[in-house]
Each structure stands twice: as C-alpha cells, then as structure tokens.
Write a protein that binds this DNA or RNA. Structure first.
Lengths: 149, 149
DNA sequence: GCATATAGTTAAGCCTGCTTAACTAAAAAG
DNA sequence: CTTTTTAGTTAAGCAGGCTTAACTATATGC
C-alpha cells in the first residue's frame, strides 16, 4: 500500500537523484563543447521541435527578437545551425540544426541515455517488468496533465 | 515481460517528458527571480550540500577561484547568501544560503514538486503502489551505480 | 495602391561571467 | 623562524547576452 503523500516523497527522491545526475552531465557537456547555456538551449529546442523562425525562439525563451537574432547569428557562425529564407514568407527565416549541431546534441543525449542503460542492466527481469509498467503509467499521467493545462 | 532495450526506451521517454517539464519550470523561476544561471546553480549546490568554501565552488563548477569569489560577492550583495570566516581556518570562508536565498530555492522546488503531486493525484491506489515500488527500485539502482563509479 | 503590421537585422550601451596576474593573509613544512 | 603552499580578493580586459531604438523588407488590410 502506497498512499498519495508517500508516493509523492518517493517520486521527489527519484527526481532529485535523477535531476542532479542529469544536470551534472549536461553542464559538463555544454562546457566541453564551448557553448553557452542559451546557445545550448536553442539547439535542444531545435532538436526536439524541429526547424523554426526567429520569433519562435524569442517567444519560447522570453527574450527580445533582437536577442534571438544575435544568438542565431552566433550559432550560424559556429556552424551549429543553418539559416534559410522561409519559402512561404520571405520576411521570415527558418533555422535548423546543421549536421554538426545535430551530432553535438545527439552525442549529449546519448551520454545521458548511457546512464539509463547501466541503470537498467542493474535490474533483473521481474524488476524491469515492474519499472516499465510504472513509468508508462507516469508518462501517460504526465501527458494527460499537460493537456488539461 | 519487459526486456532491457524496451525498458531503456520507456525510461528515456519518461526522462524526456520529465526533463522538459522540469527545465521549463526552473528556467522560468530563475528568470522571474532575476538571477543568472551560474548564481542559481550555486544556490542549488548550497541547498543540497550545505555550506562550503569558495574553492569548493570553483572545483564543482570548473571555474577559476577568482570567478567563484566574484560570483559569491554578487550573491552576498543580493542578500542571497552569507559569507563568514571559517573558524577552523582563517584563510577560508564559509558561504551558506541566507533566509532569503533559502526561501527562493525552496519555493522553486515546491513548484516543481507541485507538479508531482498533481501527477500522483491522477493515479488510483493500485497504480500508486506499482509506481512507488518501481521508483524505489530505480532510485536504489541509481545509488548503487553512483557508488561503483 | 497606400497604410499598417510583421519578421528580422544592426548598433549602442550595459551587465555578467570569465580569465590571468598581482596581491594579502594565514597555515603548513622544513 | 623562514619558506612554501593554500584560500581568497581585486583589477584589467574580453566575450556573451540582453535591451532599446532605428532600420529594411515583405505581407496584409482597406
């Protein structure tokens, strides 16, 4: 029997463990690649949501259009993104990850995931079944919550 | 039956969902409080690991001693940390969260946790039991992994 | 077709974060 | 007791990120 408060504590503990581990890894990766955090965040956004315009960047990160434009410019200079004209609206630009940028983000994700694989290899078959079922429940609950908000 | 690769995928999916949600919340909180990311990271470190010296900051965040000292100075100016002489070594300083800094971090954590509580409230008793047991397994596996590294 | 709104760029100016180098003060080593 | 190491501060200088304001170019509304 696991009541609501008890389960909250368990999840919080897991969150702390997991966040700490994950953040340490990411910040190391960002530092090692010589990017700044804002630059990195944009690459992540492009990786997960695909190509977008400058305005979407400034909306998403709550900065001015000018800031987003300058940030994009630096990423273009570093060869991490490509900036093209939007064929449907010649005022707009489309930015997307270059192959270099893609590699950089994917290698970071891969390293984060490697930890997960090690975690999994420490579980036996029965534990894996339980954990799998539970995380599906959580992921679904999170998706449902996202919708209602 | 959940095999290793399948479980890895499930955890990755949960990680993505959870990280995305959590990062969005934190970056909003940091922006709202007017802190910079490095300042925020130091406050988090102080919250989770307690008081420490300047050198521990520079080690942890891989910056020079000078940078850590300047960062600490700004946090003292903002009233977010307190800096005192280490009674055991008068060369060293001890920095720790002020009550203002503590409140700021705790309110951020509280907001993150609120999401967890909502998540939990979407689960029934049986699901809660399953999820609780599974996350304990994962947290323990993570702790074991941490030790061996 | 002309006025207005929208997408993005550029420049000036400020603040933060970082580095190196020079410094003070205290502890540890000999 | 002197030398060396360790902890931290300060100053100069650079780069990044941000803002506002002025600007260009395209799209939209009437």
């Amino acid at each position: 029997m696991t009541d609501q408060a008890q389960l909250s504590r368990i999840i919080r503990k897991w969150m702390d463990t997991f966040m700490h581990r994950s953040m340490r890894g990411w910040s190391h990766h960002v530092k090692a690649t010589g990017m700044s955090m804002p630059q990195f965040s944009i690459l992540m956004q492009l990786h997960y949501k695909g190509a977008c315009g400058i305005s979407e960047i400034s909306d998403r990160f709550e900065v001015s259009n000018a800031a987003a434009s300058q940030l994009a410019e630096r990423l273009v200079q570093s060869g991490l993104i490509e900036r093209t004209e939007d064929p449907d609206d010649r005022r707009a630009k489309l930015i997307k990850l270059s192959s270099k940028g893609k590699k950089l983000i994917e290698s970071g994700i891969e390293q984060r995931y490697r930890w997960v694989d090690e975690l999994v290899s420490n579980l036996n078959a029965e534990e894996r079944t339980k954990v799998g079922a539970a995380l599906i429940l959580l992921t679904e609950a999170a998706a449902k919550l996202e919708q209602t908000q």
